[in-house]
Computed example of a mutant assay.
Amino acid sequence: MAEFGRVVRSEWTKIRSVRSTLWTLVTAVLVTVALGMLISLVVRHSFDDLSREEQLTFDPTFTSFAGTTLGQLAMIAFGILVVSSEYGTGMIRASLAAVPRRGVLMFAKLLVATALALLVGMVTSFLAFFLGQALLGPYRTDLGEPHVLRAVVGGGLYMGLIALFAMGVTWMLRSAMLSFGVLMPFFFLISSILSNVEATRRVGNYLPDVAGSRVMSVIDDGDRPYGPWLGLLIMLAWVAAAVLAGYLVVQKRDA
C-alpha cells in the first residue's frame, strides 16, 4: 500500500508538471462554459421565433451544456497527453524501471488522471448550468426541478469518462499523433454523421458520446431507445473496453 501511494504521488507530479495537460483542462472549462453562455443568450432572445413544438420541448438544462461538444475535445486532448507524454519523451522506460508492475503503474495514472478529470468535469458542468440559466432569464430552470440535478451531475461524469476513454485508446496506440488522428475525427465528425443520418442512426445511437450525452437531457426527445442512465452505462461499457484493451497492450508490448 505504501508503494502504491508513492506511485500515485509520482503520477500526480508528472501530470501537474506538464503544462500542456493542465492547459487542456483550463480550455475544457472555458470553452464549455463560454459557448454554453453564448447559446443560452441567443436562445433567450430568439425564443419567440421557435415553433410551438420546439417551445414545448425546450430543454433549458441541455441548452446550457451546448458547449460540451467542443469542451469534450479538450478533455480528449487531456486524456491523450496524460498517457502519450511518457511515450513521446521515452520516460516510460524509466517509469517501468521504477515500477516494474505495469498494472500498478497504469492504475495509479488512471486514478490520478480520472479523479482530476472528474473534478474538472463537475466544476465545468455546474458552472455551465448556473451561468447558462442566468442568461436564459424567464426560460430558465433550477436544480430543484425534476431530473435537473441528475443532468448536471451526469454532465460532469460525461466529461470525466470522455477523458478516461481517450486514455484507454492512447494506451493501445501509444502515440499522441495517432490518438489525435483517430479520436478527434471520430467524435467531431464520424459520430455526428452516423447519429444524424437516418440510415446509420441505429448504429450512431450506441456510440459512446451519443449514448453518454443522453444523461445531460431532462426532456426526452424520443430519438434514442434508452433512458439517461442506460445511455451512461453504454458509454461506461465503451470506456471499460478501451481501458481493458489498453491494459492488455501495456502488459504484452515492450516500452
Rank of each mutant, 00 (worst) to 15 (best):
A2K: 15
G5N: 14
G5W: 12
V8H: 05
R9E: 12
S10E: 13
W12G: 05
R16M: 09
R16D: 07
V18H: 07
L22T: 10
L22A: 05
L22S: 07
W23L: 12
W23M: 10
T24Q: 00
T24N: 00
L25M: 09
V33P: 01
V33R: 02
V33L: 00
L35T: 15
L38D: 10
I39H: 08
I39Y: 11
H45V: 01
S46T: 14
S46Y: 09
S46I: 01
S46M: 08
D48C: 01
E54M: 12
F58D: 02
P60Q: 08
P60C: 05
P60K: 08
F62D: 09
T63F: 00
F65Q: 03
T68R: 00
L70E: 10
G71A: 08
L73Q: 11
A74Q: 06
M75V: 15
F78C: 04
F78A: 02
I80K: 00
L81P: 03
L81D: 05
V82E: 03
V82Y: 02
V83K: 00
S84H: 07
S84G: 06
S84Y: 04
S84N: 10
E86I: 11
E86C: 07
G88A: 14
G88D: 15
M91F: 13
M91W: 13
A94V: 12
A97G: 12
R101Y: 06
R102H: 06
L105P: 04
T114Q: 01
A115P: 01
A117C: 10
L119Q: 10
L119I: 15
V120H: 01
V120N: 01
M122V: 15
V123H: 03
T124W: 01
A128L: 08
L131A: 10
L135K: 08
L135S: 04
D142W: 12
L143W: 07
G144P: 06
P146V: 11
H147E: 05
L149C: 02
V153N: 00
V153P: 00
V153D: 00
G155T: 14
L157M: 12
Y158A: 04
M159P: 01
G160C: 08
G160M: 07
A163K: 02
F165E: 04
M167H: 03
G168Y: 03
G168W: 03
T170E: 02
W171V: 10
W171G: 07
M172L: 12
R174M: 05
S175G: 07
A176R: 13
A176W: 06
M177A: 13
L178A: 11
L178K: 10
L183Q: 09
M184I: 15
P185A: 10
F186T: 11
F186K: 12
F187T: 13
F188V: 13
L189Q: 09
I190D: 04
S191T: 14
S192Y: 09
I193D: 06
I193P: 00
N196Q: 14
V197E: 13
R201D: 05
V203M: 10
Y206F: 15
Y206E: 09
D209N: 12
A211K: 03
R214M: 00
V215M: 00
M216P: 00
S217F: 03
D221V: 01
D221E: 09
R224L: 11
G227C: 08
P228W: 02
P228M: 02
W229D: 08
L233Y: 04
L233I: 13
L236N: 05
L236E: 04
A237W: 05
G246D: 06
Y247M: 11
Y247H: 15
L248E: 08
L248C: 08
V249G: 01
V249S: 01
V250C: 00
A255C: 09
